[in-house]
Design a binder for these strands. Structure first.
Length: 563
RNA sequence: GCGCCCGUAGCUCAACUGGACAGAGCAUCGGCCUUCUAAGCCGGCGGUUGAAGGUUCGAGUCCUUCCGGGCGCGCCA
Protein backbone atom coordinates (compact mmCIF):
# COMPACT_ATOMS: atom_id res chain seq x y z
CA UNK A 1 0.00 0.00 0.00
CA UNK A 2 1.31 3.39 -1.00
CA UNK A 3 0.21 5.58 1.90
CA UNK A 4 1.30 8.76 0.18
CA UNK A 5 -0.87 7.99 -2.84
CA UNK A 6 -3.79 7.03 -0.61
CA UNK A 7 -3.58 10.29 1.31
CA UNK A 8 -3.31 12.14 -1.97
CA UNK A 9 -6.51 10.56 -3.28
CA UNK A 10 -8.47 11.32 -0.14
CA UNK A 11 -7.26 14.90 0.06
CA UNK A 12 -7.82 15.50 -3.63
CA UNK A 13 -11.43 14.44 -3.20
CA UNK A 14 -11.75 16.80 -0.24
CA UNK A 15 -10.20 19.62 -2.24
CA UNK A 16 -12.74 19.05 -4.99
CA UNK A 17 -15.57 19.13 -2.48
CA UNK A 18 -14.19 22.37 -1.10
CA UNK A 19 -14.41 23.93 -4.53
CA UNK A 20 -10.92 23.28 -5.82
CA UNK A 21 -11.61 20.50 -8.30
CA UNK A 22 -8.49 19.15 -9.99
CA UNK A 23 -6.10 20.85 -7.60
CA UNK A 24 -3.18 18.58 -6.70
CA UNK A 25 -2.94 17.90 -2.96
CA UNK A 26 0.89 17.83 -3.02
CA UNK A 27 1.49 15.26 -0.29
CA UNK A 28 4.96 14.59 1.04
CA UNK A 29 6.70 13.60 4.23
CA UNK A 30 6.43 16.18 6.97
CA UNK A 31 9.44 18.48 7.03
CA UNK A 32 9.50 18.64 10.83
CA UNK A 33 8.42 16.23 13.57
CA UNK A 34 5.91 18.66 15.08
CA UNK A 35 4.04 18.63 11.76
CA UNK A 36 3.29 14.94 12.05
CA UNK A 37 4.13 12.23 9.53
CA UNK A 38 2.95 13.67 6.23
CA UNK A 39 2.02 17.11 5.07
CA UNK A 40 -0.13 18.36 2.22
CA UNK A 41 0.65 21.72 0.68
CA UNK A 42 -1.93 21.81 -2.09
CA UNK A 43 -4.41 24.09 -0.35
CA UNK A 44 -1.98 27.01 -0.49
CA UNK A 45 -1.67 27.00 -4.25
CA UNK A 46 -5.35 26.20 -4.78
CA UNK A 47 -6.46 29.07 -2.58
CA UNK A 48 -4.37 31.45 -4.60
CA UNK A 49 -6.18 30.46 -7.79
CA UNK A 50 -9.58 30.65 -6.10
CA UNK A 51 -8.72 33.95 -4.42
CA UNK A 52 -9.81 32.60 -1.06
CA UNK A 53 -8.07 32.34 2.27
CA UNK A 54 -5.57 29.45 2.26
CA UNK A 55 -6.22 28.72 5.89
CA UNK A 56 -9.98 28.49 5.39
CA UNK A 57 -9.66 26.29 2.33
CA UNK A 58 -7.26 24.00 4.18
CA UNK A 59 -9.71 23.84 7.07
CA UNK A 60 -12.54 22.83 4.73
CA UNK A 61 -10.31 20.10 3.30
CA UNK A 62 -9.45 18.85 6.77
CA UNK A 63 -13.13 18.83 7.74
CA UNK A 64 -14.22 17.08 4.57
CA UNK A 65 -11.43 14.55 4.11
CA UNK A 66 -12.32 10.93 4.70
CA UNK A 67 -9.32 9.69 6.65
CA UNK A 68 -11.14 7.40 9.04
CA UNK A 69 -8.88 4.62 10.17
CA UNK A 70 -5.85 6.15 8.44
CA UNK A 71 -4.96 9.38 10.21
CA UNK A 72 -5.00 9.86 13.94
CA UNK A 73 -4.60 13.60 13.52
CA UNK A 74 -5.25 15.92 10.62
CA UNK A 75 -5.04 19.65 11.14
CA UNK A 76 -4.20 22.95 9.54
CA UNK A 77 -0.85 24.40 10.51
CA UNK A 78 0.82 27.64 9.55
CA UNK A 79 -0.74 29.60 6.69
CA UNK A 80 -2.54 26.60 5.23
CA UNK A 81 -0.43 23.45 5.41
CA UNK A 82 -2.24 20.26 6.32
CA UNK A 83 -0.39 18.15 8.85
CA UNK A 84 -1.19 14.46 9.10
CA UNK A 85 -0.28 11.88 11.69
CA UNK A 86 -0.90 8.29 10.70
CA UNK A 87 -2.78 6.12 13.19
CA UNK A 88 -0.70 3.46 14.96
CA UNK A 89 -3.29 0.81 14.17
CA UNK A 90 -3.19 1.67 10.49
CA UNK A 91 0.61 1.50 10.42
CA UNK A 92 0.56 -1.84 12.20
CA UNK A 93 -1.95 -3.31 9.73
CA UNK A 94 -0.02 -2.00 6.74
CA UNK A 95 3.34 -3.55 7.61
CA UNK A 96 4.45 -5.75 4.71
CA UNK A 97 7.99 -6.74 5.59
CA UNK A 98 9.40 -5.75 2.24
CA UNK A 99 6.62 -7.15 0.07
CA UNK A 100 5.46 -4.82 -2.65
CA UNK A 101 2.33 -4.04 -4.63
CA UNK A 102 2.74 -4.92 -8.32
CA UNK A 103 1.87 -1.47 -9.61
CA UNK A 104 3.79 -2.09 -12.83
CA UNK A 105 1.02 -4.27 -14.17
CA UNK A 106 3.36 -6.16 -16.49
CA UNK A 107 4.28 -3.08 -18.48
CA UNK A 108 7.49 -3.77 -20.39
CA UNK A 109 10.65 -1.82 -19.61
CA UNK A 110 13.85 -2.38 -21.55
CA UNK A 111 17.00 -1.37 -19.70
CA UNK A 112 20.23 -0.80 -21.59
CA UNK A 113 23.11 -0.97 -19.15
CA UNK A 114 26.69 -2.09 -18.56
CA UNK A 115 27.49 -2.28 -22.30
CA UNK A 116 31.23 -2.88 -21.83
CA UNK A 117 33.60 -2.45 -24.74
CA UNK A 118 34.80 -5.96 -25.49
CA UNK A 119 38.05 -4.71 -27.00
CA UNK A 120 39.48 -4.92 -23.52
CA UNK A 121 38.60 -6.06 -20.04
CA UNK A 122 35.97 -4.21 -18.02
CA UNK A 123 37.21 -0.93 -16.60
CA UNK A 124 36.17 0.97 -13.50
CA UNK A 125 34.12 3.37 -15.57
CA UNK A 126 31.75 0.51 -16.43
CA UNK A 127 30.86 0.15 -12.78
CA UNK A 128 28.24 2.89 -12.58
CA UNK A 129 26.14 1.83 -15.52
CA UNK A 130 26.34 -1.81 -14.47
CA UNK A 131 25.19 -1.39 -10.89
CA UNK A 132 22.68 1.42 -11.48
CA UNK A 133 21.13 -0.61 -14.27
CA UNK A 134 21.13 -3.75 -12.16
CA UNK A 135 19.43 -1.95 -9.29
CA UNK A 136 16.82 -0.46 -11.60
CA UNK A 137 16.12 -3.85 -13.16
CA UNK A 138 15.55 -5.37 -9.74
CA UNK A 139 13.41 -2.49 -8.48
CA UNK A 140 11.19 -2.44 -11.56
CA UNK A 141 10.76 -6.20 -11.46
CA UNK A 142 9.84 -6.04 -7.79
CA UNK A 143 7.13 -3.51 -8.68
CA UNK A 144 5.64 -5.81 -11.27
CA UNK A 145 7.15 -4.43 -14.45
CA UNK A 146 8.21 -6.79 -17.20
CA UNK A 147 11.91 -5.99 -17.39
CA UNK A 148 14.09 -6.90 -20.35
CA UNK A 149 17.82 -6.49 -19.69
CA UNK A 150 19.88 -5.51 -22.70
CA UNK A 151 23.65 -5.62 -22.56
CA UNK A 152 24.55 -3.63 -25.67
CA UNK A 153 28.19 -4.72 -25.67
CA UNK A 154 30.72 -2.95 -27.86
CA UNK A 155 31.74 -5.91 -30.00
CA UNK A 156 31.87 -4.29 -33.43
CA UNK A 157 33.62 -1.57 -35.33
CA UNK A 158 37.10 -0.30 -35.97
CA UNK A 159 38.61 -1.48 -32.67
CA UNK A 160 38.04 -5.05 -33.71
CA UNK A 161 39.76 -4.57 -37.01
CA UNK A 162 43.09 -4.04 -35.34
CA UNK A 163 42.47 -6.77 -32.76
CA UNK A 164 41.58 -9.41 -35.30
CA UNK A 165 44.43 -8.28 -37.57
CA UNK A 166 46.80 -8.72 -34.66
CA UNK A 167 45.27 -12.11 -33.92
CA UNK A 168 45.79 -13.05 -37.57
CA UNK A 169 49.49 -12.28 -37.12
CA UNK A 170 49.99 -13.95 -33.76
CA UNK A 171 48.04 -17.06 -34.62
CA UNK A 172 44.56 -18.33 -34.00
CA UNK A 173 45.49 -20.20 -30.85
CA UNK A 174 47.40 -17.28 -29.46
CA UNK A 175 48.30 -17.59 -25.82
CA UNK A 176 48.37 -13.82 -25.80
CA UNK A 177 44.59 -13.71 -25.45
CA UNK A 178 45.08 -14.86 -21.87
CA UNK A 179 46.10 -11.29 -21.16
CA UNK A 180 43.55 -9.19 -23.01
CA UNK A 181 44.93 -5.93 -21.72
CA UNK A 182 48.38 -6.55 -23.12
CA UNK A 183 46.99 -7.89 -26.37
CA UNK A 184 44.89 -4.75 -26.81
CA UNK A 185 47.85 -2.52 -26.06
CA UNK A 186 50.06 -4.35 -28.56
CA UNK A 187 47.44 -4.10 -31.26
CA UNK A 188 46.95 -0.40 -30.61
CA UNK A 189 50.68 0.29 -30.76
CA UNK A 190 51.08 -1.57 -34.02
CA UNK A 191 48.11 0.28 -35.47
CA UNK A 192 49.72 3.59 -34.58
CA UNK A 193 53.26 2.74 -35.69
CA UNK A 194 52.97 0.24 -38.54
CA UNK A 195 51.18 1.62 -41.64
CA UNK A 196 51.02 -1.77 -43.30
CA UNK A 197 49.37 -3.26 -40.22
CA UNK A 198 46.95 -0.34 -40.05
CA UNK A 199 45.94 -0.98 -43.65
CA UNK A 200 45.33 -4.68 -42.90
CA UNK A 201 43.30 -3.68 -39.85
CA UNK A 202 41.04 -1.46 -41.94
CA UNK A 203 40.55 -4.30 -44.41
CA UNK A 204 39.54 -6.59 -41.55
CA UNK A 205 36.75 -4.17 -40.61
CA UNK A 206 35.43 -4.40 -44.15
CA UNK A 207 35.71 -8.20 -44.05
CA UNK A 208 33.91 -8.30 -40.71
CA UNK A 209 30.99 -6.19 -41.82
CA UNK A 210 30.90 -8.18 -45.06
CA UNK A 211 30.62 -11.46 -43.15
CA UNK A 212 33.88 -13.15 -44.18
CA UNK A 213 33.80 -16.56 -42.43
CA UNK A 214 37.49 -16.78 -41.43
CA UNK A 215 37.46 -13.25 -40.04
CA UNK A 216 34.26 -13.93 -38.13
CA UNK A 217 35.78 -17.03 -36.54
CA UNK A 218 38.76 -15.09 -35.24
CA UNK A 219 36.50 -12.24 -34.12
CA UNK A 220 34.20 -14.67 -32.31
CA UNK A 221 37.18 -16.20 -30.53
CA UNK A 222 38.25 -12.83 -29.25
CA UNK A 223 34.70 -11.90 -28.23
CA UNK A 224 34.18 -15.17 -26.38
CA UNK A 225 37.26 -14.68 -24.26
CA UNK A 226 36.52 -11.05 -23.56
CA UNK A 227 32.90 -11.86 -22.72
CA UNK A 228 33.97 -14.55 -20.28
CA UNK A 229 36.04 -11.93 -18.49
CA UNK A 230 32.93 -9.76 -18.26
CA UNK A 231 30.85 -12.61 -16.95
CA UNK A 232 33.44 -13.24 -14.26
CA UNK A 233 33.13 -9.62 -13.19
CA UNK A 234 29.32 -9.79 -13.20
CA UNK A 235 29.39 -12.92 -11.07
CA UNK A 236 31.85 -11.35 -8.70
CA UNK A 237 29.74 -8.21 -8.47
CA UNK A 238 26.55 -10.19 -8.08
CA UNK A 239 24.73 -8.42 -10.89
CA UNK A 240 22.06 -10.33 -12.72
CA UNK A 241 23.51 -10.03 -16.22
CA UNK A 242 23.92 -13.30 -18.09
CA UNK A 243 24.83 -14.30 -21.63
CA UNK A 244 21.19 -14.27 -22.74
CA UNK A 245 21.01 -10.54 -21.98
CA UNK A 246 23.80 -9.77 -24.42
CA UNK A 247 22.68 -8.20 -27.63
CA UNK A 248 25.69 -6.33 -28.88
CA UNK A 249 26.35 -3.93 -31.70
CA UNK A 250 27.20 -6.83 -33.99
CA UNK A 251 23.68 -8.18 -33.62
CA UNK A 252 22.37 -5.23 -35.60
CA UNK A 253 24.84 -5.49 -38.47
CA UNK A 254 22.32 -7.01 -40.84
CA UNK A 255 19.80 -4.24 -40.15
CA UNK A 256 22.07 -1.34 -41.08
CA UNK A 257 21.61 -1.27 -44.87
CA UNK A 258 17.87 -1.37 -44.31
CA UNK A 259 18.03 1.50 -41.82
CA UNK A 260 20.00 3.62 -44.26
CA UNK A 261 17.61 2.84 -47.11
CA UNK A 262 14.59 3.54 -44.93
CA UNK A 263 15.95 6.90 -43.78
CA UNK A 264 16.67 7.80 -47.39
CA UNK A 265 13.17 6.82 -48.43
CA UNK A 266 11.77 9.01 -45.69
CA UNK A 267 13.90 11.91 -46.84
CA UNK A 268 15.63 12.27 -43.49
CA UNK A 269 19.23 11.96 -44.73
CA UNK A 270 21.43 13.59 -47.31
CA UNK A 271 24.91 12.97 -48.61
CA UNK A 272 27.68 15.17 -47.23
CA UNK A 273 31.38 14.74 -48.00
CA UNK A 274 30.57 11.23 -49.16
CA UNK A 275 28.83 10.29 -45.89
CA UNK A 276 25.12 9.74 -45.39
CA UNK A 277 23.99 12.21 -42.74
CA UNK A 278 20.86 13.47 -41.04
CA UNK A 279 20.92 17.19 -40.23
CA UNK A 280 18.48 18.16 -37.50
CA UNK A 281 18.41 21.93 -37.08
CA UNK A 282 18.10 21.92 -33.30
CA UNK A 283 21.57 20.42 -32.83
CA UNK A 284 24.22 23.04 -33.44
CA UNK A 285 27.92 22.80 -32.67
CA UNK A 286 31.02 24.76 -33.56
CA UNK A 287 30.46 27.94 -35.61
CA UNK A 288 26.72 27.46 -35.28
CA UNK A 289 26.82 24.64 -37.82
CA UNK A 290 24.41 21.75 -37.43
CA UNK A 291 26.06 18.65 -35.95
CA UNK A 292 25.33 15.81 -38.33
CA UNK A 293 24.14 12.35 -37.39
CA UNK A 294 26.38 10.14 -39.49
CA UNK A 295 24.30 7.21 -40.62
CA UNK A 296 26.89 5.81 -43.00
CA UNK A 297 30.53 6.78 -43.35
CA UNK A 298 32.09 7.83 -46.64
CA UNK A 299 33.84 4.43 -46.82
CA UNK A 300 30.47 2.68 -46.62
CA UNK A 301 30.93 1.53 -43.00
CA UNK A 302 28.47 2.20 -40.24
CA UNK A 303 29.00 3.82 -36.87
CA UNK A 304 27.06 3.77 -33.63
CA UNK A 305 24.26 6.14 -34.61
CA UNK A 306 22.96 3.54 -37.03
CA UNK A 307 23.48 0.64 -34.67
CA UNK A 308 21.59 2.49 -31.97
CA UNK A 309 18.76 3.29 -34.37
CA UNK A 310 18.47 -0.39 -35.16
CA UNK A 311 18.47 -1.10 -31.44
CA UNK A 312 15.65 1.41 -30.90
CA UNK A 313 13.60 -0.27 -33.57
CA UNK A 314 14.25 -3.68 -32.04
CA UNK A 315 13.30 -2.56 -28.55
CA UNK A 316 10.14 -0.70 -29.47
CA UNK A 317 9.10 -2.96 -32.33
CA UNK A 318 10.14 -6.51 -31.54
CA UNK A 319 10.35 -6.20 -27.76
CA UNK A 320 7.36 -3.83 -27.58
CA UNK A 321 8.80 -1.75 -24.78
CA UNK A 322 6.69 0.94 -23.13
CA UNK A 323 9.85 2.49 -21.73
CA UNK A 324 13.48 2.15 -22.77
CA UNK A 325 16.00 3.25 -20.16
CA UNK A 326 19.52 4.03 -21.32
CA UNK A 327 21.89 4.00 -18.36
CA UNK A 328 24.80 5.65 -20.13
CA UNK A 329 27.32 8.21 -19.02
CA UNK A 330 26.61 11.90 -19.36
CA UNK A 331 29.09 12.49 -22.18
CA UNK A 332 26.66 10.73 -24.49
CA UNK A 333 23.89 13.24 -23.86
CA UNK A 334 24.10 14.91 -27.25
CA UNK A 335 24.22 11.55 -28.98
CA UNK A 336 21.03 10.39 -27.31
CA UNK A 337 19.17 13.61 -27.91
CA UNK A 338 20.05 13.28 -31.58
CA UNK A 339 19.24 9.59 -31.61
CA UNK A 340 15.82 10.01 -30.02
CA UNK A 341 14.94 12.94 -32.25
CA UNK A 342 15.84 11.03 -35.40
CA UNK A 343 14.11 7.88 -34.14
CA UNK A 344 10.98 9.95 -33.55
CA UNK A 345 11.02 11.39 -37.06
CA UNK A 346 11.66 7.98 -38.56
CA UNK A 347 8.71 6.59 -36.55
CA UNK A 348 10.94 4.08 -34.75
CA UNK A 349 9.89 5.16 -31.26
CA UNK A 350 6.43 3.64 -31.68
CA UNK A 351 5.02 5.59 -28.78
CA UNK A 352 7.59 4.24 -26.31
CA UNK A 353 9.29 6.53 -23.86
CA UNK A 354 12.98 6.68 -24.80
CA UNK A 355 14.95 7.92 -21.80
CA UNK A 356 18.62 8.63 -21.39
CA UNK A 357 19.51 8.59 -17.70
CA UNK A 358 23.03 10.00 -17.56
CA UNK A 359 25.55 9.73 -14.80
CA UNK A 360 28.84 11.45 -14.01
CA UNK A 361 32.36 10.17 -13.72
CA UNK A 362 34.08 8.36 -10.86
CA UNK A 363 36.79 10.60 -9.51
CA UNK A 364 39.62 9.76 -7.16
CA UNK A 365 40.10 11.57 -3.86
CA UNK A 366 42.39 13.91 -5.81
CA UNK A 367 39.49 14.99 -8.00
CA UNK A 368 40.92 13.32 -11.11
CA UNK A 369 39.52 10.24 -12.88
CA UNK A 370 39.72 7.30 -10.51
CA UNK A 371 42.54 4.76 -10.73
CA UNK A 372 43.06 1.58 -8.74
CA UNK A 373 46.06 0.98 -6.55
CA UNK A 374 47.21 -1.92 -8.76
CA UNK A 375 49.59 -0.22 -11.15
CA UNK A 376 47.47 2.91 -11.29
CA UNK A 377 45.29 1.15 -13.83
CA UNK A 378 41.54 1.07 -14.20
CA UNK A 379 40.68 -2.63 -14.36
CA UNK A 380 37.39 -3.17 -12.58
CA UNK A 381 38.55 -6.54 -11.30
CA UNK A 382 41.46 -4.87 -9.50
CA UNK A 383 39.04 -2.53 -7.80
CA UNK A 384 36.89 -5.42 -6.60
CA UNK A 385 39.97 -7.26 -5.33
CA UNK A 386 41.03 -4.24 -3.35
CA UNK A 387 37.53 -3.71 -1.94
CA UNK A 388 37.30 -7.28 -0.69
CA UNK A 389 40.79 -7.18 0.74
CA UNK A 390 40.17 -3.93 2.62
CA UNK A 391 36.89 -5.31 3.94
CA UNK A 392 38.58 -8.51 5.07
CA UNK A 393 41.16 -6.63 7.13
CA UNK A 394 38.45 -4.51 8.70
CA UNK A 395 36.14 -7.42 9.46
CA UNK A 396 38.96 -9.29 11.17
CA UNK A 397 39.75 -6.25 13.29
CA UNK A 398 36.14 -5.61 14.29
CA UNK A 399 35.17 -9.18 15.01
CA UNK A 400 38.14 -11.53 15.56
CA UNK A 401 35.77 -14.29 16.70
CA UNK A 402 34.50 -15.01 13.16
CA UNK A 403 35.48 -18.32 11.59
CA UNK A 404 37.67 -18.28 8.50
CA UNK A 405 34.94 -19.18 6.01
CA UNK A 406 32.62 -16.66 7.63
CA UNK A 407 35.27 -13.99 7.26
CA UNK A 408 35.30 -14.75 3.52
CA UNK A 409 31.56 -14.35 3.20
CA UNK A 410 31.39 -11.19 5.29
CA UNK A 411 34.38 -9.62 3.54
CA UNK A 412 32.75 -10.25 0.19
CA UNK A 413 29.34 -8.91 1.24
CA UNK A 414 30.84 -5.90 2.95
CA UNK A 415 33.50 -5.09 0.36
CA UNK A 416 31.30 -5.38 -2.71
CA UNK A 417 28.39 -3.85 -0.81
CA UNK A 418 30.46 -0.83 0.21
CA UNK A 419 31.57 -0.19 -3.36
CA UNK A 420 28.07 -0.51 -4.76
CA UNK A 421 26.45 1.52 -2.03
CA UNK A 422 29.00 4.32 -2.26
CA UNK A 423 28.02 4.69 -5.88
CA UNK A 424 24.27 4.08 -5.65
CA UNK A 425 23.78 6.37 -2.65
CA UNK A 426 24.80 9.45 -4.61
CA UNK A 427 22.49 11.28 -6.96
CA UNK A 428 23.78 9.98 -10.26
CA UNK A 429 23.69 13.19 -12.29
CA UNK A 430 27.06 14.57 -11.29
CA UNK A 431 30.58 13.27 -10.91
CA UNK A 432 31.29 11.60 -7.60
CA UNK A 433 34.37 11.05 -5.50
CA UNK A 434 35.31 7.43 -4.94
CA UNK A 435 37.08 7.52 -1.60
CA UNK A 436 38.22 4.22 -0.09
CA UNK A 437 38.73 5.69 3.35
CA UNK A 438 35.26 7.24 3.48
CA UNK A 439 33.43 4.12 2.33
CA UNK A 440 35.61 1.76 4.35
CA UNK A 441 35.21 3.73 7.56
CA UNK A 442 31.83 2.01 7.71
CA UNK A 443 30.18 4.84 9.56
CA UNK A 444 27.15 6.82 8.60
CA UNK A 445 25.31 6.25 5.35
CA UNK A 446 27.15 3.15 4.16
CA UNK A 447 26.24 -0.40 3.26
CA UNK A 448 27.92 -1.86 6.37
CA UNK A 449 25.79 0.33 8.62
CA UNK A 450 22.71 -1.22 7.05
CA UNK A 451 24.21 -4.71 7.10
CA UNK A 452 25.08 -4.21 10.75
CA UNK A 453 21.51 -3.24 11.61
CA UNK A 454 20.34 -6.43 9.91
CA UNK A 455 22.92 -8.55 11.75
CA UNK A 456 21.85 -7.06 15.08
CA UNK A 457 18.28 -8.17 14.46
CA UNK A 458 19.40 -11.66 13.50
CA UNK A 459 21.40 -11.74 16.71
CA UNK A 460 18.27 -10.87 18.65
CA UNK A 461 16.40 -13.76 17.06
CA UNK A 462 19.23 -16.18 17.83
CA UNK A 463 19.61 -15.05 21.39
CA UNK A 464 15.86 -15.24 21.98
CA UNK A 465 15.63 -18.60 20.14
CA UNK A 466 13.03 -17.07 17.87
CA UNK A 467 12.16 -18.39 14.44
CA UNK A 468 11.62 -15.18 12.45
CA UNK A 469 9.16 -16.87 10.10
CA UNK A 470 6.89 -17.73 13.00
CA UNK A 471 6.42 -14.07 13.91
CA UNK A 472 3.06 -13.10 12.48
CA UNK A 473 0.15 -10.88 13.35
CA UNK A 474 -0.34 -7.20 13.92
CA UNK A 475 1.82 -5.56 16.56
CA UNK A 476 0.62 -3.02 19.07
CA UNK A 477 2.56 0.20 18.81
CA UNK A 478 3.18 2.10 22.04
CA UNK A 479 6.33 4.19 21.94
CA UNK A 480 7.19 7.13 19.68
CA UNK A 481 10.27 5.30 18.40
CA UNK A 482 8.05 2.35 17.49
CA UNK A 483 5.70 4.65 15.62
CA UNK A 484 8.63 6.21 13.77
CA UNK A 485 9.99 2.78 12.85
CA UNK A 486 6.62 1.50 11.65
CA UNK A 487 6.05 4.66 9.62
CA UNK A 488 9.40 4.26 7.91
CA UNK A 489 8.65 0.59 7.16
CA UNK A 490 5.38 1.53 5.52
CA UNK A 491 7.13 4.05 3.27
CA UNK A 492 8.94 1.28 1.37
CA UNK A 493 6.34 1.14 -1.38
CA UNK A 494 6.25 4.86 -2.09
CA UNK A 495 10.04 5.02 -2.07
CA UNK A 496 10.36 2.35 -4.72
CA UNK A 497 7.71 3.94 -6.89
CA UNK A 498 9.74 7.11 -6.67
CA UNK A 499 12.88 5.23 -7.72
CA UNK A 500 11.02 3.67 -10.64
CA UNK A 501 9.73 7.03 -11.83
CA UNK A 502 12.97 8.99 -11.47
CA UNK A 503 15.51 6.22 -12.17
CA UNK A 504 17.34 7.50 -9.09
CA UNK A 505 18.31 4.54 -6.87
CA UNK A 506 19.86 6.86 -4.29
CA UNK A 507 16.36 7.52 -2.97
CA UNK A 508 16.23 3.87 -1.93
CA UNK A 509 19.61 4.23 -0.21
CA UNK A 510 18.45 7.25 1.74
CA UNK A 511 15.31 5.36 2.68
CA UNK A 512 17.23 2.32 3.94
CA UNK A 513 19.62 4.49 5.88
CA UNK A 514 16.70 6.26 7.56
CA UNK A 515 15.13 2.87 8.24
CA UNK A 516 18.30 1.50 9.82
CA UNK A 517 18.68 4.67 11.88
CA UNK A 518 15.05 4.42 13.01
CA UNK A 519 15.71 0.84 14.02
CA UNK A 520 18.90 1.74 15.90
CA UNK A 521 16.97 4.36 17.89
CA UNK A 522 14.25 1.82 18.63
CA UNK A 523 16.87 -0.74 19.60
CA UNK A 524 18.58 1.66 22.00
CA UNK A 525 15.30 2.80 23.57
CA UNK A 526 13.20 -0.34 23.70
CA UNK A 527 14.32 -3.62 25.24
CA UNK A 528 12.96 -6.44 23.12
CA UNK A 529 13.59 -9.88 24.57
CA UNK A 530 13.11 -8.97 28.21
CA UNK A 531 9.95 -6.92 27.81
CA UNK A 532 6.21 -7.23 28.31
CA UNK A 533 5.90 -6.06 24.70
CA UNK A 534 8.28 -8.78 23.49
CA UNK A 535 6.03 -10.22 20.78
CA UNK A 536 5.07 -6.80 19.41
CA UNK A 537 8.64 -5.66 19.28
CA UNK A 538 9.87 -8.89 17.74
CA UNK A 539 7.32 -8.35 14.99
CA UNK A 540 8.69 -4.90 14.33
CA UNK A 541 12.17 -6.42 14.22
CA UNK A 542 11.04 -9.01 11.72
CA UNK A 543 9.49 -6.44 9.41
CA UNK A 544 12.63 -4.33 9.70
CA UNK A 545 14.94 -7.23 8.90
CA UNK A 546 12.81 -8.31 5.95
CA UNK A 547 12.63 -4.78 4.58
CA UNK A 548 16.35 -4.15 5.01
CA UNK A 549 17.18 -7.42 3.36
CA UNK A 550 14.75 -6.86 0.51
CA UNK A 551 15.84 -3.26 0.00
CA UNK A 552 19.52 -4.10 0.00
CA UNK A 553 18.75 -6.99 -2.31
CA UNK A 554 17.16 -4.59 -4.76
CA UNK A 555 20.43 -2.67 -4.74
CA UNK A 556 22.31 -5.91 -5.37
CA UNK A 557 23.80 -5.91 -1.88
CA UNK A 558 23.94 -9.01 0.33
CA UNK A 559 23.15 -9.30 4.01
CA UNK A 560 24.96 -11.53 6.52
CA UNK A 561 23.68 -13.14 9.71
CA UNK A 562 26.74 -12.15 11.73
CA UNK A 563 29.43 -9.59 11.25
C1' G B 1 32.19 30.22 -29.98
C1' C B 2 27.65 27.14 -29.13
C1' G B 3 25.29 23.30 -26.11
C1' C B 4 24.62 20.07 -21.72
C1' C B 5 25.77 19.12 -16.51
C1' C B 6 27.55 20.92 -11.89
C1' G B 7 28.59 24.78 -7.73
C1' U B 8 24.87 23.61 -0.64
C1' A B 9 28.84 23.31 6.62
C1' G B 10 36.33 22.50 6.67
C1' C B 11 35.42 17.38 3.67
C1' U B 12 31.77 13.74 1.27
C1' C B 13 26.73 14.16 0.14
C1' A B 14 20.87 14.91 0.87
C1' A B 15 16.75 18.01 0.38
C1' C B 16 10.68 13.31 -2.53
C1' U B 17 10.82 18.15 -8.29
C1' G B 18 8.02 25.53 -5.83
C1' G B 19 6.58 24.81 0.57
C1' A B 20 7.25 25.84 7.08
C1' C B 21 13.38 27.23 10.78
C1' A B 22 18.30 23.95 4.31
C1' G B 23 19.35 18.12 6.68
C1' A B 24 22.90 13.67 7.39
C1' G B 25 27.74 11.43 7.82
C1' C B 26 33.02 12.47 8.39
C1' A B 27 36.23 15.77 11.11
C1' U B 28 36.04 18.34 15.95
C1' C B 29 34.19 18.88 21.33
C1' G B 30 31.20 16.43 25.22
C1' G B 31 28.02 12.41 27.29
C1' C B 32 26.27 6.76 27.16
C1' C B 33 28.70 -0.27 27.53
C1' U B 34 28.38 -5.61 34.80
C1' U B 35 21.28 -6.54 30.22
C1' C B 36 19.47 -7.89 23.43
C1' U B 37 26.68 -6.77 18.58
C1' A B 38 29.75 0.53 20.85
C1' A B 39 30.61 -1.14 12.94
C1' G B 40 25.91 1.72 17.95
C1' C B 41 23.01 5.82 20.56
C1' C B 42 22.38 11.09 22.57
C1' G B 43 24.10 16.18 22.48
C1' G B 44 27.44 20.73 21.09
C1' C B 45 30.07 23.39 17.15
C1' G B 46 29.65 24.42 12.06
C1' G B 47 25.42 27.90 6.28
C1' U B 48 24.43 35.03 2.97
C1' U B 49 22.87 27.32 -0.82
C1' G B 50 29.17 30.75 -6.16
C1' A B 51 27.32 36.33 -7.09
C1' A B 52 23.58 39.89 -8.51
C1' G B 53 18.81 40.73 -10.23
C1' G B 54 13.73 38.79 -11.43
C1' U B 55 8.92 35.74 -11.06
C1' U B 56 5.92 34.03 -6.65
C1' C B 57 1.92 34.31 -0.80
C1' G B 58 6.56 31.26 -0.71
C1' A B 59 13.00 29.95 -4.36
C1' G B 60 18.75 25.63 -2.92
C1' U B 61 14.88 24.29 -6.63
C1' C B 62 11.98 28.32 -11.98
C1' C B 63 13.86 32.85 -15.43
C1' U B 64 18.02 36.45 -16.86
C1' U B 65 23.10 38.00 -16.53
C1' C B 66 27.79 37.21 -14.61
C1' C B 67 31.91 34.07 -11.92
C1' G B 68 34.11 29.25 -11.31
C1' G B 69 34.56 23.78 -12.65
C1' G B 70 33.52 19.38 -15.80
C1' C B 71 31.97 17.34 -20.41
C1' G B 72 30.44 17.49 -25.55
C1' C B 73 30.39 19.63 -30.58
C1' G B 74 31.95 15.22 -38.81
C1' C B 75 33.44 9.92 -40.50
C1' C B 76 35.94 6.14 -32.60
C1' A B 77 32.10 4.28 -29.41
Amino acid sequence: MNVKTLLGERLQAALAQAGAAGAPPIVGPATRPEFGDYQANGALAAAKRLSTSPWELAQRVVDGADLTGIAARCEVTGPGFISLTIADEYLAQTLRGGRLDPVGGGSRVVIDYSHPNLAKEMQVHHLRSTIIGDAMARVLEALGYDVVRQNHVGDWGTNFGRLVAHLNDTGEDSEALGDLERFYTEASERFANDPAFAERARQVVVDLQGGDPQTLIRWQRYIDISMSHCQAVYDRLGVGLRPEHVRGESAYNDDLDGIAADLEAKGLVTESDGALCAFLDEFKGKDGKVVPIIVRKSDGGYVYHSTDLAAVRHRTGTLKAARVLYIVDARQSLHFRQLFALAERASYAAGASLEHHPFGMMLGADGRPFKTRAGGGTRLLDLLDEATERARRLVQTKNPALEADEVDRVAHAVGIGAVKYADLSKSRTGDYVFDWDAMMSFEGNTAPYLQYAYARIQSLFQRGRVEAGSLTGTPTIREPVEHALALQLVRFQETLEQVAATVMPHHLCTYLYDLAAAFMRFYETCPVLDSDARDDRLLLCRHTADTLSRGLGLLGIETVERM
